[in-house]
Design a protein around this nucleic acid. Structure first.
Lengths: 123, 123, 123, 123
DNA sequence: GTGGTCTAGACCACT
DNA sequence: GTGGTCTAGACCACG
């Protein structure tokens, strides 16, 4: 399982892990009943604290994406992928909207906002 | 001076104040040598901690938009509006970048991200 | 706020805190918009790690009983007390039922089970 | 020997095995000098780890219900059924006590706890 | 002052 | 081996 951590990002590590696992579930890279890497294994692989991985896994479990069996591991549960995608898109939309509104408050033209966006997406 | 605080927003209060002052400077609503309301006055008006207003003013001063004269108040300094615009664009760029990265972490395709962006900009 | 920790109990400390806060909310001892003791304050008072208190507070927030404002504190949100009571009773009922079924599997008579229960409740 | 495992239960598997063997001993279904199925046989039958069966058997031996003869198997020892009953009652008492304490943590009145208990016992 | 995140390591229970 | 809990302390952001 490939998780990429950006430790200089403002996004907490456990959220980065959680988001990437959610993406893998949605993409089908992780299927129902698949087992996630153990907390210790992933923590060593990513060179981060086991507690941080645990927090990500707890978060996934709280949202219903995984189930944990004591002494065995953490497993992917059945998920409605369509619903998940919609949720994730809404979250992204909210973030983009906030950014656009800020740009407009700054008096930046829509063309300029689009130019910036294009640079990021294509850069 | 009209500052509007949204305390339920995820944006820190001091950033909301700072951004709105910057926007007023660029729009011309605040001109060189204009005086900002005192920390105490504004904190009472907005019903927030004086420390928070102070932090916003400190931030403006650190960025060179204002100068504080001890015992007198905080004044707007001469500003290169071009430079300010560039800075604001960079800030917007950072916000957009974070949103795009999140979308990609979620496994949303660049086309879909663009579609959402278009909807927001044109909607 | 009086929280009592039984560190020799099998029940995790953070669950003990969470349950007692929930009980206080239901009893009215904690009302909407009341502020909980800060994570550090409570951790010192109970002589436990701040992380443990934090975990209890996170759990309360995830269940919707509290809302946290960064830099300010953790506040009690509006709760439907009737609904909360029903949930808690169902949880208790499940625990009691499991115990009774175990006793019956052991071939202990209902009279004996009731005697034990009476001893506990009155002891 | 019929052992039924509920893997979705909160009760550890080895405890489920141990309890059911103890119940069989007390009921007379298993008598002195009867031989238990081998660890490997039972683990295959129940599709669980041999280590888990071993742990259940170790636990039974530690409590004096069985004796293991190297290379031959695990045998039921003579048991004082009165003593066993007492022990089982203590276990039940502990479970009931935990449930009652939880109800009290939730602020549920003793009368309400008793009502729930009555419903379960008579229902 | 507050909460938010993270570390490095411990001990326990379950498989 | 696995997860579950807890510690003691660090650094950061916000008010």
């Amino acid at each position: 399982m490939r998780i990429i951590i950006n430790s200089s990002s403002m996004v907490p590590i456990y959220e980065q892990i959680r988001d990437q696992v959610k993406a893998m579930i949605r993409s089908g890279e992780l299927k129902e009943n698949d087992i996630l890497p153990s907390v210790r294994t992933l923590s060593k692989e990513l060179k981060i604290s086991a507690l941080t991985v645990k927090k990500a896994y707890d978060s996934l479990e709280a949202e219903g994406f995984t189930a944990t069996v004591h002494g065995k591991g953490t497993y992917v549960t059945a998920v409605n992928k369509e619903l998940l995608l919609e949720e994730q898109k809404k979250e992204l939309e909210a973030d983009l909207e906030m950014a656009v509104q800020k740009g407009r408050r700054y008096g930046i033209s829509d063309e300029d906002i689009r130019s910036l966006f294009d640079l990021i997406l294509e850069g």
